[in-house]
Computed example of a mutant assay.
Amino acid sequence: MLNVCLNCGEYRVDKLIESKDRKTFAICPECDHAHEFLQLPLIIVTGPSGAGKSTIVSQLSSLTKDFVVMETDILWDDRFNSPETNYLEYRELWLRMAKNISQSEKPVILCGTAMPEQLEQCIERRYFSELFYIALVCENNELKERLQNRPSWRGSNSDEFINGMIAYNNWLRENSGKNEPVINLIDTTNISPDETAQKIVTLISDKWI
């Protein structure tokens, strides 16, 4: 558990991160103890509901064993429903989990709706070498049809929800290349989940493998 100092036992998220001789250390603000850790990249697969994020989780896991693939919805609870903080507590929770998982020498791929600004502001962000963003998008009519055809328990077929997802879809399509950091787009309108997963693996492989 990286946030607990192995020397003084204090819990501090805000450790100083320093690199030396190709090693990275988290330095405790209380006692200056330097804890070596693996500062790996974190891959974020985002996009509007209906674009295909949840569908490709199992395909991604079967295509590559070099990463740990997780869907962020599995930890959602209404206590994290805090739009006034831009869902900060929930984002911190996932970054903390991904940070600890990555100490097993496998980077994490997180699949779930998120904006870069929600993650880049997190204090846990410092423990990753890079956040690499991939967004799944599709044509608006296709997105609307997918959301309307979902089971009612998912609560995604109201006009308000659909219009919100279409707005997010449009924002990604218009701003992905201008955003900092850049968001890599994959259009899922006319491709299968298997093809989508393969495109994600190719994007990641081209960058790191």
Rank of each mutant, 00 (worst) to 15 (best):
I74R: 11
F25I: 01
C28L: 07
T64R: 08
M70K: 10
S62Q: 15
L93M: 14
V108D: 04
R79G: 03
T64I: 06
G52C: 09
L75K: 03
T72Y: 01
A26E: 03
E71Q: 13
I43R: 03
D21W: 09
Y90H: 14
W94F: 12
Q103T: 08
N86I: 00
V57M: 02
S19K: 14
P83V: 05
L38M: 11
V108M: 02
Q59F: 15
L95N: 08
S82T: 15
E84P: 06
G52S: 11
G47P: 04
D77M: 02
L93Y: 11
R96I: 00
K99Q: 07
D66A: 14
G47Q: 07
G50V: 02
T64P: 01
R91S: 06
V108C: 08
P48C: 11
L40W: 01
R22E: 15
K23A: 12
L95M: 13
L63T: 06
E71F: 00
T55I: 08
W94N: 04
L63M: 14
P41R: 11
Q59A: 03
H35F: 05
R91C: 08
P107N: 04
S102V: 09
T55S: 14
E30H: 13
V45N: 04
S49H: 14
K23S: 10
I44N: 01
P29M: 00
S82K: 15
P83T: 01
S104H: 08
I74Y: 08
E92T: 09
P48G: 11
D66C: 01
S19E: 15
A26L: 03
I56S: 06
T64K: 06
T46D: 03
R22D: 15
E89F: 09
K99S: 11
G52T: 05
N86A: 12
G52P: 08
E36N: 10
F80W: 15
I43S: 01
L95V: 04
F37E: 02
K99P: 00
I74L: 12
K65V: 00
V69Q: 03
C31S: 07
D21V: 00
E92H: 10
E30M: 10
K65R: 13
S58H: 14
I56M: 11
I43N: 06
T46F: 05
S19D: 15
E84A: 13
I101C: 05
Q39V: 01
R91L: 01
L75R: 09
P29W: 00
S54E: 12
D73G: 01
Q59C: 06
Q103I: 05
K53C: 10
T55V: 13
N100T: 07
F80K: 07
I74Q: 11
A98S: 12
I56E: 08
E92K: 11
I27G: 05
R22Q: 13
F80L: 08
P83N: 08
S104P: 00
T55W: 09
L88T: 00
K99F: 00
D32L: 12
K106A: 07
V68H: 08
E36Y: 09
I56N: 10
S102A: 15
E30I: 13
G47R: 03
Y87A: 04
G52A: 09
P83S: 07
W94G: 05
V69R: 02
A51S: 15
R91Q: 14
C31A: 07
K20G: 00
D73T: 05
I43M: 03
V45P: 04
E105L: 09
P107G: 04
P83Q: 07
F67H: 13
Y90F: 15
T55Q: 13
